[in-house]
Write a protein that binds this DNA or RNA. Structure first.
Lengths: 220, 220
DNA sequence: TTATATTTTTAGTTTTGTCTAAATTTTATT
DNA sequence: AATAAAATTTAGACAAAACTAAAAATATAA
C-alpha cells in the first residue's frame, strides 16, 4: 500500500495523538496539523475508505491495525533519516526534524532497508526515540528521569524530553548526549539541583529543570 | 527561489533537451515527460512568469541563465544522491535513478552541502556523469570511446553511455566499473572486437558494441 | 429540560497540475 | 498561393487537498 505525502502526514499525527488519548477528535488533529477541522473531516473519509481508520461520524476516530502499521513504517523512516543526518552528516539534533519530515515520504522498501543496514541497525534515534523495525516492532527500554535516580548509580542517557535548541545548547555545554554515562552524586535541597559526574570525568551541577528532562536507563 | 516538484521536473527535462537541440519544442518536451502538449504549455507560462524561460508562443523555448542555474542545482542533487546510493548503500548503478529522482526534490542547501562533504566532494556520479558544484560549475574531462584508443595506452573508465541492466551485467562480468584502469592490446579486424587488459591483471576480449559504449580518459 | 456553546460535518470554492477537445498558428505539399 | 498536415495553444473540465461559511449533531449549563 502506498500513500500520498498528505495521507502519511495525517496517519503520523493520528498515531501520535492516539498514543496519548486513545480516541482522537477532529479539532485536536486539526490543531496538531495546523489545518482546519473541515480539512480533517475530508481526509478522515479518505483514510476510512482505505480501511486504515475506525471512524464513526461525530464519534472520534483511531487507526486500526493496518493504520498503525502504516504509521510505524513512517516513524521508522523518519527516525532512520534523523539518525543518518546526525551521525553521518553531523547535523545538530535540533535541526534534523524538518529535513527528516521530507525524507520520510521517499518510497521504496529496499532503500530504507539498505539505509538501516548502512547505519548499523540502530534501535534509537538521536533524540533517544525508539526506531521500529521493518515489522513494526518497537524496541522498549526502562527509563527514568535523572531526577529520580539514586546516588552513585551508573546510568546512560537514553532520551531528552525537551528537544529545543536551548536545551541542546545546555547539554552540549555539560558534554551530555544520548549514550553518555552519568552518575548522580548529591542533591541540593535548596533548589533541587543535582551534582553529577559526566562520563566518569568532571563533576558539575545541573538544575532540577534540566534533570527532569533528561531520561536515563541502566548501564547494560 | 524554491520550486514545486513538478516545476523542477520540467526544468530538468528542458535543460536536458536544450543541451542537445538548443531550442526546445512543446511536443518533444511532452514526449520526454510522458505528458500532453497542453500540460506543457500550461507549465511554460508558469516558468516564464517566474523568469526562468525564454519563450514566445509557437516559437519554441529554452531556459535562461536563472533557469539553467536552477537545473544545475537539481542535477547536482540528483547525482550526489546517486553517488550516495551506490557508494554508501551499495545499490547497483542501474537501480538508483528512480530513487534519486525522488531525493533530488528534497530542499535545503545545508543538507546538500553536508551530503557533498560526507561523500568527499565527488566530481562524477556512479555513471560517470559530472556533478555540478554549488555554483553550477560542471567539471569537464576529455574522454574518448574505448574503441578509439591506441594500443598499449593506460586509460581509466570515466563513463558508460548505455546504462542498462544488461550492460551493467556484462561489465560486472569483465570486472569493469567507473574508475577501472584498462589497456587495449589488440583489435580483431574480423568483427572489430578488442583484446583488453583490465586493472593490470587479466586480459579478455570485448565486442565492438561494448567498446563503443565505454568511455575512458587519460590516467592522471 | 430547554437553551447555549462547542464540535463536527456538509456545501461550495480555490489552487495546482493534469486532461480532452477544439481552435489557432505554423509548416509542408501540391 | 492554396490547401493539407502538424504543432501549439486555448477553453473548459477534473481530481486532490486545502479553505470559508453555514448547517447539523453533541455536550454543557442554567
Amino acid at each position: 500500500m502506498v500513500f500520498t505525502t498528505s495521507e502519511e502526514n495525517y496517519i503520523k499525527s493520528i498515531f501520535h495523538l492516539q498514543q496519548e488519548t486513545g480516541l482522537v477528535n477532529t479539532n485536536s488533529l486539526a490543531a496538531e496539523m495546523h489545518t482546519r477541522p473541515a480539512s480533517v473531516t475530508d481526509m478522515l473519509k479518505k483514510l476510512k475508505s482505505k480501511k486504515l481508520l475506525q471512524y464513526e461520524k461525530y464519534k472520534g476516530f483511531k487507526l486500526n491495525e493496518a493504520g498503525k502499521k502504516a504509521a510505524l513504517d513512517i516513524v521508522r523512516k523518519h527516525r532512520l533519516w534523523e539518525f543518518f543526518l546526525v551521525e553521518k552528516l553531523k547535523f545538530d539534533w535540533d535541526k534534523v526534524h524538518p529535513i527528516a519530515e521530507e525524507l520520510e515520504h521517499i518510497s521504496g522498501d529496499e532503500l530504507i532497508q539498505r539505509l538501516d543496514d548502512f547505519l548499523g541497525n540502530p534501535s534509537f534515534d538521536p533524540h533517544g526515540d525508539p526506531i521500529p523495525d521493518k515489522n513494526g516492532k518497537v524496541p522498549v527500554i526502562k527509563q527514568q528521569s535523572l531526577s529520580e535516580i539514586p546516588f552513585k548509580k551508573n546510568v546512560t542517557v537514553s532520551s531528552v524530553s525537551n528537544q529545543t535548541a536551548q536545551m541542546l545548547d545546555m547539554l552540549k555545554h555539560y558534554c551530555i548526549a544520548i549514550g553518555t554515562q552519568l552518575m548522580v552524586l548529591k542533591k541540593f535541597d535548596f533548589d533541587g539541583s543535582l551534582e553529577i559526574k559526566v562520563s566518569k570525568q568532571n563533576a558539575c551541577i545541573i538544575s532540577e529543570q534540566v534533570a527532569k528532562n533528561v531520561f536515563v536507563h541502566d548501564v547494560q
